[in-house]
Design a protein around this nucleic acid. Structure first.
Length: 544
DNA sequence: TCGACTAGCACGTTTGAATCGG
DNA sequence: ACCGATTCAAACGTGCTAGTCG
């Protein structure tokens, strides 16, 4: 039996148990089971960068099976993206804002699917906010344990997913490398790209067939522990309901806070003034002591001397922060890596004619796609061959690879991307598909599918010459989670330091499950109730 | 000295239990 | 007894700020 292998440091996720419990009252379409996040043992796998999406096609591309995903709050994301999205990360974990909200369609209403999100580094650079823009200032920190956030509704039927907005807002980001709450661990000041995966599930612990991955380029962000760009702060305050108190009309806006601070100071000084005679009489303090403590009382006749505070700022926008969108004072230093979508969408920003080192990747390899149960190889369908990136970007036809055979995702069919005969492609701008290749699935059965390597420079997002289309919904097999461990004999990976998370599958979950998951599995097998809540009790659930 | 980070704060939102009335 | 609406308080999510750390 094929089943999900959860990983060593897997923990129950940050989702609220109550949430699961009450969600369970919904129609039986969904069955909360999985922790919302889990570590993934990526250490043994070849390091990888985020596999870039293919050239853009239509805004909501469909998979071969017609699976389509749309970012619902795309306009909000675009707003942030146009400034340079920053995400706060804290030790306790911080939610993402904006959150990932999407609509999915094209799923089989009766089949069950697991939806999960992961966040992968876009490059191997560390960033710093300098001169009003983000600059790559050095190499990235060592890759942290990869974790995925499994949507609490998972697994649920296609009808369930398609009937509502899918939100990953419960996912939390942390910079605590020892985090045990299941939050997604990220490095501060690094650039990340969230990805959403739809995986067909045939059983609670059994993967099914197809899987689809989606990337929305406008959801890229840079992690911070404190906001660097005031425009982002302003945007967050204005659009996040939780930050309403910091708005202009809120009680916690800067104006009000300054006013409060003034009042407190005034009251404090007033108290000191009232008490001072006592001090003077009791402690025999001299005039000099008095005046040195309250210098302002001598300079004003008012009983409420002005507090030595800076004048309250009327608004965040008034802060003297370089404004990248200010046409009167353009910031030519804004690097193109700073959200390339801006570069083509905002006329005030410099064109993406320059590239930063982080975007100078020249090649990458696909993770091994799962096998198809088809007897014929399932070629990666790439945009129509084009000799120029611009022409490829204008293409609307590229197709995802879907895994349709559970056999294909067993550990005995390791994926190992490094085993692909990927030519170390120079920064060519031509699309690899012009020379269709097949990627052998090494341990694969005879019917293994093959996929061609792709020149990263052919991907518009990584190629400054290619117009970037932030509105695109990317869907590409290269974004699929890695499903299998690498082949022992696999040649080394060609791409640099970061590993994407591998969703490894195994045939028997028992040995590999961590204690909590084994417990779940036992429950699943024997139907014992869990003390923490019925949502963990699998006894009454139908196995699909 | 400086930048990154953290803890605590105040405020607003969300959530779920309690209450009430039909 | 049941159901829906309302109320309330605790928990949670925010950004801000002062202080700490390397």
């Amino acid at each position: 039996m094929l089943s999900v292998e959860m990983y060593p440091s897997l923990t129950l996720g940050s989702q609220r148990l109550g949430d699961c419990f009450y969600r369970d009252r919904e129609p039986s379409a969904h069955m909360p089971l999985f922790p919302t996040a889990c570590d993934v043992a990526a250490k043994a796998l070849p390091p990888r960068l985020l596999a870039p999406p293919p050239p853009p096609s239509d805004p909501a591309p469909k998979s071969q099976d017609g699976v389509k995903m749309e970012l619902e709050n795309i306009s909000l994301w675009k707003q942030f993206s146009s400034v340079g999205t920053e995400m706060i990360i804290t030790k306790k974990g911080r939610r993402m804002f904006p959150g990932l909200r999407m609509k999915v369609s094209g799923l089989s209403p009766s089949l069950r699917y697991i939806l999960l999100m992961d966040i992968v580094p876009v490059d191997n650079s560390r960033y710093r906010f300098q001169g009003g823009s983000w600059q790559a200032v050095g190499g990235a920190e060592a890759r942290l344990p990869d974790r995925v956030f499994i949507h609490p509704d998972s697994p649920a039927t296609g009808a369930h997913w398609q009937s509502r907005t899918i939100s990953f807002h419960y996912a939390k980001l942390t910079n605590n490398t020892l985090d045990a709450r299941g939050h997604i661990i990220l490095h501060s000041l690094h650039r990340y790209q969230p990805r959403v995966h739809v995986i067909e599930a045939r059983d609670v612990l059994r993967w099914g067939g197809g899987q689809y991955s989606f990337v929305f380029p406008e959801t890229q962000f840079i992690t911070v522990t404190a906001y660097q760009n005031n425009k982002i702060t302003e945007l967050k305050i204005n659009s996040n309901p939780f930050a309403k108190g910091f708005r202009e009309d809120g009680m916690n806006c800067k104006k009000q806070r300054d006013a409060r601070q003034n009042i407190h100071l005034i009251l404090y000084q007033f108290d000191r003034i009232r008490l001072c005679p006592l001090y003077r009489s009791d402690a025999q303090l001299g005039e000099a002591a008095y005046t040195s403590v309250f210098p302002t009382t001598q300079t004003t006749s008012s009983p409420f001397p002005p507090a030595p505070l800076p004048p309250p700022a009327p608004s965040f926008s008034s802060l003297p922060v370089p404004d990248s969108s200010d046409t009167s004072n353009p910031q030519p230093t804004i690097p193109p890596i700073d959200y390339p979508s801006i570069l083509t969408s905002s006329p005030t920003l410099p064109p993406s004619s320059t590239t930063t080192p982080s975007l100078q990747q020249t090649s990458f390899t696909f993770p091994t796609p799962p096998h198809s149960n088809s007897s014929s190889p399932q070629p990666l369908l790439l945009p129509p061959s084009s000799s120029s990136p611009s022409s490829s970007s204008s293409s609307n036809t590229y197709h995802p690879i879907t895994a349709t055979d559970s056999e294909a995702i067993s550990p005995h069919t390791p994926p190992d991307t490094s085993s692909f005969p990927v030519p170390s492609s120079p920064s060519s701008s031509s699309y690899a598909s012009s020379h269709p290749q097949t990627l052998p699935n090494p341990p694969a059965p005879p019917s293994s599918s093959s996929y061609p390597p792709v020149d990263i420079s052919a991907i518009s997002q990584f190629n400054a010459a290619v117009p970037y289309r932030p509105e695109m919904v990317r869907h590409h097999p290269s974004l699929l989670p890695q499903l299998d461990p690498p082949l022992p004999s696999a040649p080394p990976a060609l791409y640099p330091p970061f590993s994407s998370y591998p969703l490894r599958l195994c045939q028997d979950p028992h040995p590999s499950l961590t204690i909590p998951l084994r417990h779940l599995y036992r429950q699943h097998q024997h139907g014992h109730a869990h003390a923490q809540g019925s949502y963990l009790d699998m006894s009454t659930r139908a196995v699909f």
